[in-house]
Design a protein around this nucleic acid. Structure first.
Lengths: 196, 196
DNA sequence: TAGGTAACAGGTGTCAAACTTTGTAACCTG
DNA sequence: CAGGTTACAAAGTTTGACACCTGTTACCTA
């Protein structure tokens, strides 16, 4: 018996997210998801090629939910580039702290994908790098920053702040002084970046 | 029958290191170590309070083997502080790359201790931070670097270069461009550090 | 008495059998 | 014919009996 409302990819994603949250990334099965939807597990495979693909789609959606917040900060020309760089790096940390606090299960799922060099993780990094490049390009254009390759400089800044956004350091984001540490790293990087 | 040469802590450490290398950190048992020494496993417990303590002692010894190389670079007043900072950071990376290549089993054992916040790991970090502080203090003294707290600045530099020495990033140390990346991060940090 | 032994309780790891899960295939149905 | 079904093989996971390891104790001996 087909369900009254036909199954769509979005409903599958929502149900998977829920199951992932309740069972954890290791115990969430496709059968569980199907059961939650009142459907056979084969139906789920009509919408997603594999369990891996389903997981990636859920994680991508979850990562994308805060993209606009960060993109907004990166693109806000009203704030001078140096201060914008600082705020943006803080925002990245804050967003990730919130994610780990609110959704430890989904965060763990993201960690697994990142470790497996999944395109979701590299895509997320590319997205953040793009935003950072935009901030630095703005700073280069208005003379605040000294650089002749905004993308390369963005990569360097991103590497130097790995402790504050790389999943491998997630445990350290709970440390009480972490924001101050980021502030200090920002200050040193800005000294290096700015004309003076 | 007691052995001809009485067992001492050092012989136990050497045997443990050997077993660790041959069996890997997960399969190396205290019984294996005792067997290699021709002794009962209880004898090993006369010298080390627990398997954990034995492991930590082995790791500490292994970490200490390259300490002098790095300490030598850090203390070499013949090299100007800026260049010394750069060489030292490269040396830390090189030493760790060599360790992971030559002794993956012992490196894995170190990774486990680091994750468990063992005093061996924190001690190792404190040691490196001390060396870095010395370089920066030298730079502050001769006017190369602008800082009023060498230890704090050392912490910031260490944090900003986490990707090149923190165990969590060990997999990335195999990347071909990693040295160039470190070079670029160094350059930016030195710009920020130096008077100009 | 420092440094060894043998024996043991309790915890952890291993292995094969039984069960789940994944992914596919062949088949319905509005 | 898109979107569902049941049935199934292959791969992965759980289970439970059993072996092995850790850490301790009581004891031996140069």
């Amino acid at each position: 018996m087909p369900p009254r409302t036909p199954l769509d990819a979005d409903a599958v994603l929502a149900a998977t997210e829920d199951i992932l949250r309740r069972h954890g990334p290791d115990k969430a099965t496709v059968v569980d998801v199907a059961r939650a939807l009142g459907v056979s597990h084969a139906a789920v495979y009509k919408h997603f090629a594999s369990k891996q693909a389903l997981r990636e789609a859920v994680t991508r959606r979850w990562l994308d939910r805060n993209r606009d917040t960060l993109a907004g900060i990166a693109a806000d020309r009203a704030v001078p580039p140096a201060q914008r760089l600082r705020s943006w790096l803080h925002a990245v940390l804050t967003v990730k702290q919130a994610k780990i606090r609110e959704d430890p299960e989904l965060f763990a799922a993201y960690g697994i994908l990142a470790a497996a060099h999944s395109s979701v993780a590299t895509g997320h990094v590319a997205d953040l790098l793009g935003q950072l490049t935009a901030i630095i390009a703005d700073g280069a254009a208005d003379g605040t920053f000294r650089t002749d390759d905004a993308a390369a400089t963005a990569r360097v800044v991103f590497t130097a702040t790995a402790r504050f956004h790389h999943v491998a350091h997630a445990a350290e984001w709970q440390n009480p002084g972490i924001e101050d540490e980021l502030d200090e790293v920002c200050s040193l990087l800005l000294e290096g970046l700015q004309n003076n």
